[in-house]
Design a protein around this nucleic acid. Structure first.
Length: 448
RNA sequence: GACCCUAUGGUCUAGCGGUUAGGACACCACCCUUUCACGGUGGUAGCCCGGGUUCGAUUCCCGGUAGGGUCGCCA
């Protein structure tokens, strides 16, 4: 039997990091088994659905690289889709639900109740055979024991989650339901519905949740909960996906950074851990840095230029070779691409403020004659290249009887406005003699 | 309140009926160095508690505790 899994988000809120992880595990299992990954939009809550949320779901999955085999192609519920089990928006499957409810009603398995339809839930404990958690015997809670039946169609005629979820899994021939553990308790209801429809339940696999760093449940309002925070925050999908793979799953060989293709090869349901995991942004950031450092030039330039553009820097105003040379000095130094405007913006603007800490420390009176002497030495240099700049600076330092750092720090502040940044000699070479002398003069005037 | 899941350093994890309990992030110190970052070396820190089984439990069983989830005409 060919594996068919689905990710079935509800567009009532923006794509969540936990939802992304659920999508990832479904995708991994589909790819691992050579199965099919279906995307289904559960938009039955008309009042709370938004088109923007649908778009973020599609954009987010594509950004992560989790392409689906079946499902909508655009965020338009009436738009094109791919696959033989559509429509993939639940808002367009109402006839299916109606027919299923009729069948239950006619067989006495459901009944009308004050305008709504309720399903006659079994009173017996339900055993859930879960691929991750094992066998779970779910008994009724006290409140359920008082009234075990539950609503499957609202009095306004709209079908409810438990019903539509099961009907679609059934009609879309879903073989494995991989979802968050928050659904484990509800699974008894779903199994009862499958029984009522006379078909076996899919294989369930309930995966642990992602918690906040303090161990509380991550909600949409928490820091870092939304996928857009990563998409817009200068992260790369490789790092986010890699990090997500390491939550509740492990390659078991002490490696942390590993290619997705290898995860696909090794991923399987029984090895998924059972305990919730806390989200650790520091570790994600570390992985982000690992990836950012190892990108090829083209990818690095592309992401960098994009990040600079978002911050208002138009790199098209500069020669391509200049832009590339400037970015080359930043590679391996930054983690988040969002850091780049602050880190390398000095290459692309002549007017900038000096960081106050640096002014206090480096633009001191005794440094003025030193910087002047350095400026004069630089003025005589041709060509203006890093190795010669370093020799010149160290010679001046020697003549002054000071360590190189005494000149390096004010020179850096003068030319970049910052106390930290790319290699000084290389950034000077990239800026070029004219810009460097101009900036040194400006700093000298400022120190006056 | 009831039902369900879970429990290895601060965090993510490996592991085992007998191990000096391994790795990674973070943190601290030192080295490298023009800053930052990288890299290198070293370090602090862990098997939730109580019973039971056993020659021996972090590992198996039971209980407790703690954390999480669910019990909607939300999904």
């Amino acid at each position: 039997m060919k594996v068919r899994v689905r990710f079935a988000p509800s567009p009532t809120g923006f794509l969540h990091i936990g939802g992304a992880r659920t999508a990832l595990f479904n995708w991994l299992y589909a790819r691992h088994t050579g199965g099919t990954f279906v995307l289904r939009i559960e938009d039955t809550d008309v009042a709370r659905n938004t088109q923007a949320a649908v778009n973020v779901i599609l954009d987010g999955l594509r950004w992560l690289g989790l392409e689906w085999d079946e499902g909508p192609i655009t965020g338009d519920a009436t738009g094109p889709d791919k696959g033989d089990c559509g429509p993939y928006f639940q808002s367009h499957r109402k006839a299916n639900y109606r027919a299923r409810v009729e069948a239950l009603l006619s067989r006495g398995l459901a009944y009308e109740h004050e305008g709504a339809v309720k399903f006659k839930m079994t009173r017996e404990p339900v055993v859930i055979h879960d691929a991750v958690v094992g066998d779970v015997r779910r008994e009724l809670t006290d409140r359920e024991a008082a009234d075990p039946d539950f609503v499957i169609v609202r009095s306004d005629g709209e079908p409810v989650f438990h019903l539509v979820n099961v009907v679609d899994d059934l009609e879309m021939n879903i073989t494995h339901v991989i979802r968050g553990e928050d659904h484990l308790s509800n699974t008894a209801k779903h199994i009862a519905l499958f029984r009522a429809f006379g078909v076996p339940s899919p294989q369930y696999a309930h995966i642990p949740l992602i918690l906040n760093p303090d161990g509380t449940k991550m909600s949409k309002r928490d820091q870092g909960a939304l996928m857009t925070a990563y998409m817009d925050g200068g992260f790369v999908p490789e790092a986010v996906v890699n990090y997500l793979c390491l939550l509740s799953w492990s390659p078991k060989d002490n490696r942390e950074k590993l290619p997705l293709a290898e995860v696909v090869e090794r991923f399987d349901l029984p090895q998924i851990l059972r305990a919730n995991a806390r989200f650790d942004r520091d570790k994600l950031l570390w992985l982000q840095g690992e990836y950012a450092r190892e990108f090829g030039d083209d990818r690095f330039y592309e992401l960098s230029i994009h990040a600079l553009g978002r911050a208002g820097f138009d790199t098209n105003l500069f020669p391509v070779d200049y832009v590339k040379a400037a970015l080359d000095t930043c590679k391996g130094k930054i983690k988040l691409f969002n850091e780049l405007p602050g880190y390398a913006g000095f290459y692309f603007k002549d007017e900038f403020d000096y960081t106050p800490d640096g002014v206090k420390k480096d633009f001191i009176p005794e440094n003025k004659p030193r910087l002047q002497k350095l400026r004069d030495a630089f003025a005589g240099l041709s060509p203006f290249i890093a190795v010669d700049l370093e020799i010149a600076l160290k010679r001046v330092a020697g003549e002054l009887g000071v360590k190189a750092g005494v000149l390096v720090h004010p020179a850096r502040l003068a030319c970049t406005g910052n106390t930290a940044g790319p290699s000084l000699y290389h950034l000077l070479e990239v800026l070029g003699k004219d810009r460097v002398l101009l900036r040194l003069d400006r700093a000298l005037a400022r120190m006056g």
